[in-house]
Design a protein around this nucleic acid. Structure first.
Lengths: 154, 154
DNA sequence: GATTATTACCCACAACTACCCACAATGTAT
DNA sequence: ATACATTGTGGGTAGTTGTGGGTAATAATC
């Protein structure tokens, strides 16, 4: 199947084991291009969740960051906050990645986690948090939300 | 080629087997262009039904989503809701696709299902639900049709 | 340097999925 | 009317996937 590479969709209800490992859904591993060498960059999400990027995709983000001028205070702290918690991981023979205690705490992950495809990246959530956060942001900006839907959904 | 490719019309009353598989009508498979490689993307519809897109069509939606910056909260929430329940499936040698329990529950599908051509996508319905939802649309008043008239010519 | 903690690598297994074969019903051609 | 191909439906099997845990290598601490 020649689906878009490095593109993730769908929701998976998986579990975090006692060692803090989470499985990457087989479908996600399948579309990860070979040049990534089974590796991702994981970091804090802007929402209370963990973001998981294919390294290739992450590198292009780094390139963008490089272009931002360090003259601006906002730019400096933005660069700092995006890069600060990022580290690369390779999944093991069973297809799992280890999530650092730091990130587990930030996303308040417990045994049951929700893994979401987000097109160019993957999100790992505590299901309870996702419910409240997502419902909230849809309601606050419902007009912008509808506008996007009109433009994009076929 | 006599008919537009990737264009679906007509209605079919098929059945969901015990494994949650539904047949894609032969006519639909016939007009699915080769580049799709017998694959669709299935997801939640806006109505309580399942939407089935040819992969090619879905990819154009993905491409639009990819352009949205994750710095904006509405964007994140929109991408999440659009992609969350979407997954790609290839039909088997008998022409069937597997529908996930998640989607079956959402569309309240039972053994007997209605498969509808919807021009650029396919809908799968519980016949009972379609009746009640469509009854409401019969009551669309003429002003709403006037608005539509600006967008489409029949 | 010895001991403990942490990480990476490997094996095991149950549950699930994809793949294949079979068959009846329907449609088509001879 | 008969033979043949196609289509929709059911089910069995082998391989894959998610999950738990064990062991060796590495790092950290005293």
């Amino acid at each position: 199947m020649t689906i878009n590479q490095n593109t993730f969709t769908g929701e998976y209800s998986y579990s975090l084991d006692t060692k803090g490992r989470a499985n990457i859904p087989a479908k996600f591993r399948g579309v990860l291009s070979a040049e990534n060498e089974q590796s991702f960059v994981i970091t804090r999400g802007m929402d209370p969740c963990v973001w998981v990027y294919p390294i290739i995709v992450w590198q292009s983000i780094e390139d963008e960051l490089r272009k931002l001028s360090s003259l601006s205070q906002v730019n400096r702290s933005f660069v700092r906050s995006t890069v600060r918690y990022a580290s690369s991981v390779q999944y093991d023979k069973q297809g799992r990645i280890a999530i650092s205690p730091n990130l587990i705490e930030y996303a308040q992950l417990e045994k049951e986690v929700l893994i979401l495809g987000m097109v160019n990246k993957i999100e790992i959530w505590n299901p309870k948090l996702l419910d409240s956060v997502d419902k909230n942001s849809q309601e606050i900006d419902s007009s912008q939300f509808d506008e996007l839907a009109n433009q994009i959904i076929l």
